[in-house]
């Protein structure tokens, strides 16, 4: 889903750059640029415009305040942890869906996208109810003294929920196409299944896994609807960064909100850039 996949495609079309015989270039270009500009780019530019009105000192002051920093820390750490959990379970799920036959497999495959189709607010209140001290699962953990809802554990669980499809859907097609010869070669050389998996299969899946991880991570950082209910919004503890933006907006502190958003935006872009770079690096190996 990231830019790298596109890059592969684009190189392919480059070859015939000569004469343009297909009509419709001007129209498609016009419509594309006009819509992209009006609906995405110009509104997005506003954030940089308003940020530029902020003094540099003021900007630094906002984004380094204790509350804001803790918001970033909560968002990033929980999203990272959730993406890791998703990477592990995502691989297991993709493996099970590709390699095994069992009753209910189609249903399981169809369910993967549920977090995507289910409105985040609905997921949010359902998860909060489930993991609160009185909830079906939360009460089990409450007995042993573990609180889930209104803690960072709860936030992480909500982020796991929204992130699952990204990893599964990134890894699944690659695993489907993976040539069995690699495994057979490892097996003929005497490797057992776990060793073969970690030394031979996992490296093959790694670029896709990384893409899925990155998307799940980015989604977790930005996620609002499913997290806001279970987070409980306790300052310095469970306040996520997107919620801070919301709070500032409700207080009409637009400058603060813009500053917080800008940093969050830069983090997302940096993350995507990083993952794209690693993927481009990994692509060198795929020629063989």
């Amino acid at each position: 889903m990231t830019g790298v996949f596109m890059e592969q495609h684009i190189v392919k079309v480059k070859n015939k750059k000569g004469v343009r015989v297909i009509p419709g270039f001007g129209l498609s270009m016009g419509v594309t640029l006009a819509m992209l500009g009006c609906l995405v780019l110009i509104p997005l530019a506003s954030i940089f415009l308003s940020a530029s009105r902020l003094g540099f000192g003021e900007f630094i002051g906002v984004v380094t305040s204790r509350q804001v920093v803790s918001g970033y820390v909560v968002s990033l750490s929980c999203a990272f942890l959730a993406a890791l959990v998703n990477a592990v379970f995502g691989i297991v799920l993709a493996w099970v869906l590709v390699r095994y036959e069992f009753p209910g497999k189609r249903l399981m495959d169809g369910m993967i996208e549920l977090p995507f189709a289910l409105p985040t607010a609905v997921a949010g209140i359902a998860l909060t109810y489930l993991y609160s001290d009185q909830g079906w699962i939360g009460s089990l953990f409450a007995k042993v003294g573990i609180k889930i809802a209104y803690t960072r554990i709860g936030i992480t669980i909500a982020m796991v929920f929204v992130g699952i499809p990204f990893v599964v859907r990134a890894v699944q097609p690659v695993l489907e196409k993976l040539d069995r010869q690699y495994e057979e070669a490892a097996m003929m050389l005497g490797a057992n299944k776990p060793y073969t998996f970690f030394r031979v299969i996992l490296p093959e899946l790694f670029p896709a896994l990384l893409a899925g991880f990155g998307l799940a991570f980015a989604r977790g950082i930005g996620e609002y609807g499913s997290v806001v209910f279970i987070a409980g919004n306790i300052p310095y503890k469970t306040q996520i960064a997107p919620l801070l933006i919301m709070t500032k907006l409700e207080q009409y502190k637009y400058a603060d909100a813009t500053a917080i958003a800008l940093v969050l935006l830069l983090i997302s872009f940096l993350l995507m850039f990083l993952i794209n770079s690693i993927q481009i690096y990994m692509q060198r190996f795929s020629k063989a």
Binding site: D179, Q181, Y182, E184, A185, A186, M187, M188, L189, G190, A191, R199, V200, P203, E204, F206, F285, S286, A288
Partner: peptide, 18 residues
């Protein structure tokens, strides 16, 4: 197969890319 004392060269070699 791994216990049969066999070496196998695959059609597309199946070299480990990484």
């Amino acid at each position: 197969g791994s216990k049969r004392g066999i070496g196998f060269v695959f059609q597309n070699y199946a070299l480990f890319r990484y």
